[in-house]
């Protein structure tokens, strides 16, 4: 019997309304890096609560998290 192949465990997230998968253990900072977001003028919300910038590197994502990443745009 061939050895059973297992995929690395994944977390399923909703980021800005779209489904995404990331590796278990991923933090908010990892996610921003994956998304190539380098601007400091962004803010992150996880399950409707702001994640402060200082906490990005230590905030581990969990399966089912709903993430919003926002920035400033033109508006009145």
């Amino acid at each position: 019997m061939p050895p059973e192949r297992t995929l690395p465990p994944q977390l399923h997230l909703t980021v800005n309304g779209e489904l995404r998968s990331v590796a278990v253990g991923h933090t908010v900072a990892d996610l921003l890096r994956d998304l190539d977001i380098r601007s400091v003028a962004v803010a992150v919300e996880r399950n409707r609560e702001v994640v402060r910038r200082a906490q990005h590197a230590e905030t581990r994502l969990a399966d089912g998290d709903v993430i919003e990443v926002v920035q400033f745009v033109g508006g009145g």
Partner: peptide, 9 residues
């Protein structure tokens, strides 16, 4: 004034 909107991913 500015508005707050999702980052375009």
């Amino acid at each position: 004034t500015v508005a707050v909107r999702r980052v375009d991913l």
